[in-house]
């Protein structure tokens, strides 16, 4: 005698192909603790940018001049809690070094062999420019560029130069002012080039921008998710609006007027004053994303501006629904 086991709830829905459907509503809750999963994901997501942020160049651009000298431009995020930052230069023959910090003030530097000690004192991002003679060598008519780069970089070759050898694969190549600009990956790169006296019969054509549907799919997906998030956020906010309103009114009244703020902080930059005006007119608070949209600034520029205002004691930053809420400080006068 054989016993037949059937899922009683779905008995009627078994199709001709015999696929068995089982209710799984509770599996997620019983097998995986949702809050635990969310918390661990948040930790992973939070750690990823931290791992790659400090001390890693955001941008690295190199321009080779006709005499083989190379101009290096880079931007690096540094730890704002340290007094100085030691940067490894790509060689020891350095000229025309310029290092600027958050407020675009020159920072003090001290070159020791092939590194530079930069006095950062609270700066979050430093921009560095210098000329270096160590990256290109010449034998006969052949010029050789060599670099062991810590990150991907762009390399602009001199005009009329023709590449005749390279040791690794380029990520991209463009024509900028009749010069070849290569995008190369991190690690060791060696490129040989000649200065071409004969015209090349088949010049390099600027690569066409082919549509990358996969990228669009990713961007589209992110936009949809963000829109859903905003909808949920707005709905929740509308629900809570009435209960919150009576708390907010007295807070707004405590904010200093603009004249007083600017009088207390006479050294504020003009663009920072514009930010303060906008926040003030927006009832004393605004999301950082709103500021970015209003002033059409990239994320990092706005973040630096907001951090600057926070250091000046004009604003305070609060986390609200995973976003930065920028609020004018209420006790500025007392602090002065």
């Amino acid at each position: 005698m054989t016993s037949l086991i059937e899922p009683t709830q779905l008995k009627h829905s078994l199709g001709d192909d015999g696929i068995l459907f089982v209710r799984n509503d509770s599996i997620f809750d019983t097998m995986v603790k949702t809050p635990l999963l969310v918390a661990s994901m948040i930790i992973v997501a939070a750690l990823l940018p931290i791992q790659s942020s400090f001390s890693s160049p955001r941008d690295l651009d190199l321009i080779i001049y006709p005499d083989g000298t190379t101009h290096v431009t880079t931007e690096i995020e540094v730890d704002p809690f340290l007094t100085d930052y030691e940067l490894n230069l790509f060689g020891s023959t350095i000229d025309n070094l310029v290092v600027i910090g958050d407020n675009e003030f020159l920072l003090d530097t001290n070159i020791i062999d092939d590194s530079v000690l930069i006095q950062t004192f609270g700066t979050t991002v430093i921009s560095i420019e210098y000329d270096i003679h160590d990256l290109v060598s010449k034998q006969g008519k052949l010029w050789t560029f060599y670099l062991d780069s810590p990150s991907d970089f762009k390399l602009l070759l001199p005009q009329n130069s023709a590449i005749v050898g390279m040791t690794n694969l380029p990520i991209n190549m463009e024509i900028v002012n009749d010069q070849n600009q290569l995008t190369l990956s991190s690690g060791k790169t060696e490129i040989d080039y000649f200065f071409s006296t004969n015209t090349i019969t088949n010049p390099i054509v600027e690569p066409k921008n082919e549509i990358d549907y996969f990228s669009y799919l990713i961007i589209g997906g992110i936009i949809v998710i963000v829109l859903i998030g905003i909808t949920i956020f707005v709905r929740n906010k509308q629900k809570n609006l009435n209960s919150v309103e009576h708390i907010e009114i007295p807070i707004k009244n405590n904010i200093l007027n603009l004249e007083t703020i600017f009088k207390l902080k006479p050294d504020l930059r003009e663009d920072d004053k514009e930010l303060v005006k906008f926040i003030f007119n927006n009832d004393g608070e605004a999301l950082e994303s709103e500021l970015r949209k209003k002033f059409l600034q990239p994320r990092t520029t706005m973040w630096r501006a907001v951090k600057r205002l926070e250091r000046e004691g004009v604003i305070e930053i609060e986390k609200k629904d995973l976003q930065n809420l920028v609020k004018l400080r209420k006790n500025m006068e007392e602090e002065q």
């Binding site: 005749v164 090349i200 390099i204 690569p207």
Partner: peptide, 23 residues
């Protein structure tokens, strides 16, 4: 996606190098 930008650039660089070497 970034690492696979337009593989045709490889051919363009190689052809340019070939012609330069011939010259």
């Amino acid at each position: 996606a970034y690492a696979q930008t337009d593989p045709n650039i490889l051919l363009r660089i190689a052809i340019q190098a070939d012609k330069q070497v011939v010259n």
